[in-house]
Structures are given as structure tokens and as C-alpha cells.
Design a protein around this nucleic acid. Structure first.
Length: 586
RNA sequence: GCGCCCGUAGCUCAGCUGGAUAGAGUGCGGCCCUCCGGAGGCCGAGGUCAGAGGUUCGAAUCCUCUCGGGCGCGCCA
């Protein structure tokens, strides 16, 4: 409908150009908005005000000329000039009613579109280091990323969800070493656990399972392990040097093969846990991309060579630098360290080159907003690789602060007793957790109240929306239990009977759903959809309290049943995109 | 110190490429089923859109400055 209004205005403008009232080079993009106030009709355009200056005509006068030039259309009931020069469109009720037939016909695909048809997009999200279970900080990115991907699919894009597994860095060596030390404890050794090691209980679990499998094969006495290793921080040393010393010792004593076995045991166990965790949270991936692949197949060298050939690399103080400051970054970045090791950033350059090579038209990265300083250097890398940096879209997600009522939930990651995502799911459930995470704009801080999310009262927005759905299901059950007749076709032919204030506004809302969906998708802002669903639920509850659906008048009853079925479908479609269930009873 | 983000009702937050009288939820004060699920609905009070300039027909929205808060500034990942 909105498109139709734009088209009508477009024709009017062309007509006025022909009449030389307007000139073709003045014409701005025609903007049509939903009105906020029903008194202003359904759609409004500020076109006359935009053109007034260049046409040297008063906005209201120009608006009159535009209206006079508008072609007739059956779905437009009337057009008015209002305020400083707005052109307000009132849509014919019969045209509005059509939406109910559309929804019932389209079912689950109501609201979808093809604006992204034929375009390949990648959404990379979560990508937490596989050094421990996911915590609540990852939850928001997980839900946000998966919903953005789902929204893009709904408007036609060919979307691939991807998780980048950082399995090649120093953190993984620390993990492997931590597991080994716990394993040594299983062997009966007494270990002074490094302050910089991974202390979580899951490390001990992995070590114990590993011990059960390999027995004493990896055992060494503690004295030998710690011999010659720089002292730890509590003893006045440096914790980084201490843990690095232990990593070297692990490699040396175990040899490459056994070290790799421990390393793989840790990676496999934790990754399996992350996969299960995400799957249970309704988050699925098409690809799990391993950083180690880039190391092993020479991609990093290839990427650096490409940058070097294009003249973006130089050597200084024994290291190799990427001249990113010439491409918008704050300073140049090291890609190969003095010791010959490539940096994490070098992997990331190779990774993004790989993404580009896979032919995605748009590359979306969902990152924690604490990484925002990292964006310019990746964009610089894209440019230096010869790609259009605008293909890259980095969506930043702020951490949520957890509360239980008024009380803040402590979240220390140091001690390993942080609140895990699994814990959150257990406490509030998948539906509430997902809904809450996308309730707010993603790049804003948010307070997540666990108590509110689990409350079974009207202040909980998840239950509020789900309840609207369940209520409709209940009415439909009543229809059957009471043995009332129901004729969908007759209902569709009687839609003009839906004329109360509540019905008109509900139908108006339903017509907005496809627009809301498209906007949420294209702007990567799921919260618009969430707000829409709350509003739809609210209007339904009001309607429910004001009017009886199962009335004696058969035609009216059929029409109303069609309306609430359309609402039911729309709620379920929207909740489905959010990964939230639509329960038939609660 | 430099860079990015943010500041809207008591609290949590919306506010689409600048548009009409700035909106929800919660909390607070009233009220509403002989009826399809009261996990609901209605009404009311509550605002210097942090502050000050500027841009224009029009600014919560764009520009500049000030104040207040968050984050980032490794040859870590």
C-alpha cells in the first residue's frame, strides 16, 4: 500500500513536470510515512514541503496542485492537506480488509519479501574463543546474530551463519596446559596452579576424562614440570611469563604428538559444549570456520603476500607492519612479530580474504562493542586487499547487565564462576532469554532482569505476547467445544462488518507487518519487530476485552474469527523469526 | 590525553531518510467480567528530550562547544 502511494505521487509529479509547474531536476526521493495519528489518515507525504522552496510556491498551494494531479485509485478514499503542507492519504476500508485474506492465504510466509533475492550474505556471530563455556555476555550476540540472519532470510537473502573458531592462538595453549596440569593432579601430583591458567571446573572435568582414557601416559612429576619456569605473580614474578614457561615445558616434556592430543581433547570437548549450548538456545550455523585452517593451508602467507604486492607492508624493528594508518586506521599494525609468528590480526586479514573469495555480497560481523576499536583496521585490510570495505558491516552488541530484581548479579570471569549461558537458559528459559535479548536496540546497554523474565505476570513482555496467541487458540477451541459453525469463505465475504474502532486499528496494524519486517531486516534492528508484536498483542487484548467474537450473528462471527486467525498467524510468524515459541496454551 | 558510542517520564526503554500535540512498559492513583482464559483491559497524574549556541518552513533527530557516563587505544585474542 505504501508503495502504491509512492507510485501515485510519482505519477502526479510527472504530470506536474509536464505542465511545467515543477522541473525534473528538483525532484527528491518521494517519502511516504505511516501517520502517527489516525486523524491524519493512514499515510502522509511531506513532498509539497520538500518542493516548495525550489518551486517558489507556498507548500499548501503546491500540495493542492499535487493532489489535483493525482490519478484516481480505488483503494484511496480521500486525500487531504494538513498542517504546514502534509498530504494525507486515507485508505479505503475495503482495501485494508484485503490484508486478512492475504494473511490467511499466505500463512507462515505472510510478511516475507524478495528484496534480497539472489544476494549472498554471511553473518558471523558469537565466535567466542573455545577456551570455556559460553557465558551470558555471549548470549546477546548469539540471539541478535541469529535473529538478524533469520530476518534477512525472511526478506529473501541467501544467508550463511558462521562461527569463527579461534583455535590457533596462545589462549588455546594456555587451555591445553591448564588441562595437562589438572591431569597431573589426577596422576597424584600436587600442582601450584598458575594464576593465569583456566581455573574453571570444566577444565578439571576434561582432565579427568582425559586421564580415564590415557591413564599415566602423560604423567610427569611436578618438580620436573616447574623446573626452570619463571615464578608466578603471587611469588613476585610475572604471570604471563610463568604461563608461557609452562606451555614451553608442556611441549618439551610431552613432545609434539602428545601435546597435540591434549590440545585437541580440550578443543573438541569445549567446542562440542558450545555447539550443544547454542543449538539448545535455538542458534544454528551453516559453517564452523577454524582459524587453524588458515594457518595450515598457507592462507595467511597468501594474504600477506597480496598486501605486500600492493605495497601495504613494510618492515620495522624486526617485525612486519601493515600500513593501515593510510587507510583510516589510527596507527599501523604488526602482522608478523619479531619472533616470526603472525598475529591474530594477520589471521583475520586472511579470514576476511577468504570470506570475500567465497563471493558474499555482504559480510556481516557481530562483535561485542568492546571491539569497536578493531573495526577500522579490518576495513583498512579489506580495502588493501582490493575489496570494497562497504561490503563489511560490523554490528556491535553491548553487554547486558544482569539483575535479579534490584540486585546486580556479579559476573567475574576470573575465578571461573561466571554466569554461563546454560545457567541463564535454565533459570529463565529459551523463549524469555531470546525475547529479552532483542527487546532493546543491540548497541545500547541493557539491564536484563532475571526475575522479570521469569515472572508469570503482565509485566513480562514475553508472556504478554505469547498469551495473546494462546488466548486466540483458546477462543478457537471454544468455537469447537460450543459446536458453533465456521465458514472461512463467508467470513472473507463479510469483512466489511469489521468496522468497530478496535477492528479498524487491528487491521491497520496487520497491514504494517511486512513493512516492519523489512525495516527490521534491512537495518539489522530486530527490536522494531519486538515492539510491533507487543503492540499487536496489546490491541488484541483490548479488542478481546471490548468485544465478543463468538456472537450469534453468523456472518459477523465468521468475519471476526478470520480476523483473530490473521492476528494469530502474524504473531506466530513474528515470534518464529525471533526464535520464540507460540504456545497454544500456557 | 586521543578516538568511538551514549544522555528522552521515578525506573527500563522506543522514537523510521529531520515532520504534525515526544510515546510504550513498569511503578503510582482510580476503575472494569452473570460474557470466548483477569497471565487481561480502561482512565489519570508524571517531560527544560543533559545544557548552550547554530543550520531551516520545521530539530529529541543534523553541526559546534560544555557537562556527565561507557568502551577502546599491545609484536593479546
Amino acid at each position: 500500500m505504501k508503495q502504491k502511494v509512492v507510485a501515485l505521487l510519482q505519477q502526479a509529479v510527472e504530470e506536474l513536470i509536464e505542465q511545467s509547474v515543477l522541473q525534473s531536476d528538483w525532484i527528491p526521493e518521494i517519502s511516504v510515512e505511516r501517520t502517527r495519528d489516525a486523524q491524519h489518515g493512514d499515510f502522509a507525504s511531506n513532498l509539497a514541503m520538500m518542493l516548495a522552496k525550489s518551486a517558489k510556491t507556498a507548500p499548501r498551494q503546491l500540495a493542492e496542485a499535487i493532489i489535483a494531479a493525482l490519478p484516481d485509485d480505488v483503494s484511496v478514499e480521500k486525500v487531504e492537506i494538513a498542517g504546514p503542507g502534509f498530504i494525507n492519504f486515507f485508505v479505503n476500508p475495503a482495501a485494508q480488509h484485503q490484508i486478512i485474506a492475504d494473511i490467511l492465504r499466505l500463512g507462515p510466509s505472510f510478511g516475507k519479501s524478495e528484496v534480497g533475492a539472489g544476494k549472498k550474505v554471511q553473518v558471523e556471530f558469537v565466535s567466542a574463543n573455545p577456551t570455556g563455556p559460553l557465558h551470558v555476555g555471549h548470549g546477546r550476540g548469539a540471539v541478535y546474530g541469529s535473529v538478524v540472519a533469520e530476518l534477512l532470510r525472511a526478506v529473501g537473502y541467501d544467508v550463511a551463519n558462521e562461527y569463527y573458531v579461534n583455535d590457533a592462538g596462545r589462549q588455546m595453549d594456555i587451555l591445553a596446559t591448564s588441562i595437562w596440569l589438572r591431569y597431573l593432579e589426577c596422576c597424584g601430583q600436587t600442582i601450584q596452579f598458575p594464576s593465569n591458567g583456566y581455573r574453571g571446573g570444566y577444565v578439571e572435568d576434561i582432565a579427568r576424562q582425559f586421564f580415564d582414557r590415557v591413564n599415566q601416559d602423560f604423567c610427569f612429576v611436578a618438580a620436573e614440570v616447574f623446573d626452570g619456569v619463571p615464578v608466578d605473580e603471587p611469588q613476585g614474578g610475572d604471570k604471563e611469563q610463568h604461563v608461557d614457561g609452562l606451555i614451553s615445558k608442556a611441549r618439551e616434556l610431552l613432545g609434539q604428538e602428545r601435546y597435540t592430543q591434549i590440545f585437541q581433547a580440550g578443543l573438541t570437548a569445549i567446542l562440542a559444549d558450545i555447539r550443544d549450548d547454542l543449538a539448545e538456545f535455538g542458534v544454528d550455523y551453516q559453517h564452523w570456520f577454524f582459524e587453524s585452517l588458515l594457518v595450515d593451508d598457507g592462507s595467511i602467507e597468501a594474504a600477506l603476500e597480496r598486501l605486500d604486492k600492493a605495497g601495504h607492508l613494510y618492515k620495522k624493528e624486526g617485525a612486519t607492519w601493515f600500513a593501515s594508518s593510510l587507510l583510516g586506521d589510527e596507527k599501523d599494525r604488526v602482522v608478523v612479530r619479531e619472533n616470526g609468528q603472525s598475529t591474530y590480526f594477520a589471521s583475520d586479514i586472511a579470514y576476511h580474504m577468504n570470506k570475500l573469495d567465497r563471493g558474499f555480497e555482504r559480510i556481516i560481523n557481530v562483535w561485542g562493542s568492546d571491539h569497536h576499536g578493531y573495526v577500522p583496521r579490518v576495513r583498512a585490510a579489506m580495502t588493501a586487499l582490493g575489496a570494497d570495505a562497504d561490503k563489511l558491516e560490523v554490528l556491535l552488541v553491548q553487554f547486558a547487565v544482569l539483575y535479579r530484581g534490584a540486585e546486580k548479579v556479579p559476573m567475574s570471569t576470573r575465578s571461573g564462576d561466571f554466569v554461563t549461558l546454560r545457567h541463564l537458559r535454565d533459570e529463565v528459559g529459551v523463549d524469555a532469554a531470546r525475547f529479552f535479548y532483542v527487546l532493546r536496540k543491540s548497541d545500547q546497554h541493557m539491564d536484563f532482569d532475571l526475575k522479570l523474565a521469569t515472572s508469570q505476570t503482565n509485566d513480562n513482555p514475553v508472556f504478554y505476547v505469547q498469551y495473546a496467541y494462546a488466548r486466540i487458540c483458546s477462543v478457537l477451541r471454544q468455537l469447537e467445544e460450543k459446536g458453533l459453525s465456521r465458514n472461512r469463505q463467508q467470513g472473507l465475504e463479510s469483512l466489511e462488518l469489521l468496522s468497530t474502532e478496535h477492528e479498524v486499528s487491528l487491521i491497520g496494524l496487520l497491514t504494517q507487518y511486512p513493512e516492519v519486517l523489512e525495516r527490521s531486516a534491512l537495518k539489522y534492528e530486530p527490536h522494531h519487530l519486538v515492539h510491533f508484536l507487543r503492540e499487536l498483542a496489546n490491541h488484541f487484548h483490548t479488542y478481546y476485552n471490548a468485544q465478543q467474537f463468538l456472537v450469534d450473528d453468523v456472518k459477523l462471527r465468521d468475519a471476526r474469527i478470520n480476523l483473530i486467525e490473521a492476528i494469530q498467524q502474524c504473531l506466530s510468524n513474528g515470534l518464529g523469526l525471533l526464535g520464540v515459541n507460540s504456545p497454544e496454551s500456557m
